[in-house]
Write a protein that binds this DNA or RNA. Structure first.
Lengths: 216, 216
DNA sequence: TAGATTGTTAATCGATTAACAATC
DNA sequence: TAGATTGTTAATCGATTAACAATC
């Protein structure tokens, strides 16, 4: 699939998927752009435009049937397909702090198309121990081994949960070794080469943005 | 301050702030829109337009000096002021799971203008115990007490880390009690009344969005 | 068929980019 | 003064919204 979806559209796909799952759990078979829009806070036009773009880029979106709405089942499976959720991408995690632990213990990486294969940290007391995840266990290695590991195993993606001061250097090692996407959970802005996908989860940026919209 | 900044601009303010702090640590006094843009991945025009909007809405942005650039010190303090980081907003946290624990132990809420005053959970073994935060301790209460607590204490903001199935109901209780902003860390789309600020951190949405940009 | 809703084209809106005059 | 860079206006771009014909 040649991705040429706009980022706003791309960002809405997981929400369509989630709504499809909700509707499916209510045994609904069809849903109109109007209803979809209302429950997600979009406009009906936006929904139809999104699906039109998907059809253009990915062949099909949700089997729209004039007069009836979209097939919920198709909506779900097509969102999963377009987001590539069923194709597991190998992934390493760098920085096994509290956030990483919380994620490993609770977050469904597999559901997001990500298979965690290795974790790295600097602390001697962590190196060599096991990181438990929802799906199994992952060995925590010395971050010094990261370049060699990447050269050998060629992970597709990386999760960045390291301290801010080493975030850029770590990202550089990862992109140099051919990682195609970085999920950046550090509170810094990192730069990646053209062609490498970057998703930032800047928790503090998000909360700061909220802060100024609240009166004391 | 009458917020009438566009959301894209608003979302860039924390990044200006962070860059200002970095520059300040390097003892830099001035920075041009060109340099600022390069290090943050924006364009110089975007930076100048942002600052123009800030000047319009908030009086001043970064004391631009033609020929010299912007004052780093002003940039920092004005971003802090506009984001209201120095005015602490009272806040409750609902759902003391692993993510909440990781945040409480590590995340600098105060730096974001948020003061955590209470936490709520349903589990009897958690209720009555203490949640340690960076700044101190917070009592974990029975979530059944949430409406009364809110009615009495009138918290300004809320952090939603509860299970997805009770997210909307919890949000309703909070907004009914007059909460002005919700930081939503649950993986569901919640609806809030007009006038209530909502910041979503949909971790799985973010990772899914990354997933489809990576080849297997 | 009539009603509903999609698919698609056109209009609008807003954000980004470009250009340049003002000015330190 | 000359060079640099802001402040600001205009042009461009892209996304959202609106409108309506096609069609189930």
């Amino acid at each position: 699939m040649r991705i040429k979806l706009s980022y706003p559209t791309l960002r809405r796909l997981p929400r369509y998927l989630r709504q499809a799952e909700t509707l499916l759990s209510e045994a609904r078979t069809h849903v109109s752009s109007k209803e979809l829009a209302e429950s997600l806070g979009f406009t009906p036009s936006q929904v139809r435009q999104d699906f039109a773009a998907l059809k253009e880029v990915c062949g099909v979106a949700a089997d729209g049937l004039q007069g009836y709405g979209y097939r919920v089942e198709s909506l779900k499976t097509n969102m999963e397909r377009i987001l590539k959720l069923t194709e597991q991408k190998t992934c390493v995690l760098v920085g096994v702090g509290n956030l990483a632990l919380a994620l490993a213990h609770n977050f469904d990486f597999i559901r997001c198309g990500i298979r965690l294969d290795a974790a790295f940290d600097v602390l001697p007391e962590k190196i060599g121990t096991i990181l438990r995840t929802l799906e199994g266990e992952v060995l925590i290695r010395d971050v010094a081994e990261l370049p060699d590991y990447c050269a050998l195993q060629r992970p597709r993606a990386a999760i960045l949960t390291c301290p801010p001061d080493v975030a850029q250097d770590t990202a550089d090692i990862l992109t140099l070794s051919g990682v195609q996407g970085i999920w950046n959970l550090t509170n810094v802005d990192i730069r990646v080469p053209e062609g490498v996908a970057l998703e930032n989860v800047h928790l503090s940026d998000s909360l700061m943005t909220l802060s100024c919209r609240i009166d004391v």
